[in-house]
């Protein structure tokens, strides 16, 4: 056991696997059952597959899309066994998940193409925006970056206190103007401060808002807009946080937030539960936006850079 492991830090892959453990075993045992004693992928197997995907929140239309593609391939090469089916399934899903944009690196050590690199974090209520910012700050700081937080959620009770505690945990400064301050002004001042201090990374927290509330979505667009007055390209990244336990509504969320602030990446939180977060497959494919991070716990270290091959492998692999 390494020193770090003794301290309770797990290696990246282990955490990812642990987080996905439940879904992996569930899926495998079901697929296994469906194929045992059969040398072809028949109707029954596809039904099982449908169940597995739907119960992972992949959604009906994406599931049908995947099944149709598998059916086509089954038609072509008739005798598929379990492992071939899994391989094809893996390929199809990986193909649906968009690859990370190299302009907006997710790796913490990578040099940021802009300085400051401004990341705005958005999403509906309670999905884990503030916590994700705390984790990102911690990771960037660990990677030697100069980080600045902006407390632009001035609405939710004690939101500023919450982010302040995270700034202390991560050991990074925070710009805040208290509760009920103008969120756009906070974002503006944060980017301005980052520019004059020469910060590498800026993380802007925003209040949770339901995507069907027009006024609140307009406010978000405004918060985004004012930042570009100081740094023309800012925010370089607009991260939409999705709760892995959310069902099909996540698609509506992603569409509405894209419309309002043009999201550039997704963060999928709470994957340490039994929810599978399958909805990101459809979102990533339909909106052409990559999943960048996953959250697998409530501590600072419980965040990982999303790796689509690893993600799908962790879902389907045996060992």
């Amino acid at each position: 056991m390494s020193f770090l492991e003794k301290l309770g830090f797990k290696k990246k892959e282990e955490r990812l696997k642990e987080g996905l453990e439940k879904s992996r075993t569930g899926l495998l045992s079901k697929l296994g059952k469906a194929v045992i004693g059969k040398d072809t992928v028949d109707e029954e197997v596809l039904d099982e597959l449908e169940e597995v995907l739907i119960t992972s929140d992949v959604g009906v239309s994406t599931t049908l899309k995947i099944i149709r593609r598998i059916e086509e391939r089954v038609k072509k090469d008739k005798y598929l066994n379990t492992s071939e089916l899994q391989r094809i399934l893996r390929e199809e899903i990986i193909a649906l998940l968009r690859e990370n944009d190299t302009d907006k690196p997710a790796e913490f050590e990578a040099a940021t193409p802009a300085k400051p690199h401004v990341i705005m974090v958005v999403g509906v209520n309670g999905v884990g925006k503030t916590t994700t910012i705390g984790k990102l700050a911690w990771h960037y700081k660990q990677a030697g970056k100069n980080v600045l937080l902006g407390a632009a959620d001035t609405f939710r009770a004690a939101a500023v206190n919450q982010l302040t505690i995270w700034s202390e945990r991560a050991g990074v400064p925070i710009i805040q103007q208290g509760q009920n301050a103008d969120p756009a002004a906070v974002a503006y001042d944060t980017v301005a401060a980052a520019k004059s201090r020469g910060a590498d990374v800026v993380l802007i927290d925003t209040a949770g808002r339901l995507h069907n509330k027009k006024g609140l979505m307009d406010e978000l667009s405004k918060i985004k807009r004012v930042m570009s007055k100081i740094v023309p390209e800012a925010p370089h990244e607009v991260l939409l946080v999705l709760d892995a336990s959310t069902g099909q509504n996540a698609m509506q969320q992603a569409k509405a937030f894209t419309e309002a602030v043009d999201i550039t990446g997704l963060a999928l939180t709470k994957l340490d539960g039994t929810a599978k977060g399958g909805i990101v497959i459809g979102i990533s494919s339909e909106l052409n936006v990559p999943v960048k991070y996953i959250g697998v716990g409530e501590q600072a270290a419980d965040l990982q850079v999303f790796d689509r091959v690893g993600f799908v492998n962790a879902l389907f692999d045996k060992s």
């Binding site: 739907i54 119960t55 992972s56 929140d57 509906v124 309670g126 709760d243 336990s245 959310t246 069902g247 099909q248 509504n249 996540a250 539960g273 039994t274 929810a275 599978k276 909805i279």
Partner: peptide, 12 residues
Amino acid sequence: VDSMTGQDAVNT
């Protein structure tokens, strides 16, 4: 419970 919860609602 969050009304936006998906399939996992039964487990929780």
